[in-house]
Amino acid sequence: MGKSRNVIGFPYRRLDEAFGSDAPVPAAAAQGEPGTYVRASEAERMAARLQAVAERGDRAAFTELFRHFAPRVRAYLLRGGGDAGRADDVLQQTFEAVWRKAKLYDRRRANPAAWIFAIARNARIDSIRRERRPEFDPQDPAFRPDPAPEGERALAAGQRAEAVRSALSALSDEQRDVLWLPFYEGETYAQIAIRLGLPLGTVKSRARLAFQRLRRSLAAQREGLK
């Protein structure tokens, strides 16, 4: 799994643990660090908390969401090249948005971590990059809605994250680089090309292949569930 190779400061060891490594690495888990293993049931619990915030403005549920996600969101904001003061401002904005937008959360569609990630990502673009984030609007009359569901059994929020986690663990280090660096380090393909000493086109096609491989592996997992 290339644990010795760590040319880009990428926490492979932690990722291997989280994505389900073949050899258990219990050191970090034994120290009681939170978030190393996030299981489907926890995602379901967080989804229920979001729903409680949406339905009745449940402050205890919101506090629990904050305790669970705030350290992770903060780490994400700090990795993206923000200083601590600004990261905390953006963290605050993120959770204000979580409170405001909870009623738009649909647990059949998104798992809580993905939903909060998207909010933190947008807050980061707004505040740190000072750019606008163009987004589609499902209420737009020009919006082409999803076709009626075909009765296909969708994976529950938690199961989906589990499936993605295991699919990520099956990727090569090279493929994981091109996913990790944009998502977590906030690097553009051009920056990754410089960092890895590769032509831009190679980085883009590697990203496309990694995404494709992930999709296939998810489809295979879905088949396995039938």
Binding site: L15, A18, G35, P112, A113, A114, F117, V164
Partner: peptide, 8 residues
């Protein structure tokens, strides 16, 4: 993105 945020 969510999985990476959770696992980092």
């Amino acid at each position: 993105g969510g999985v990476m945020m959770e696992s980092a």
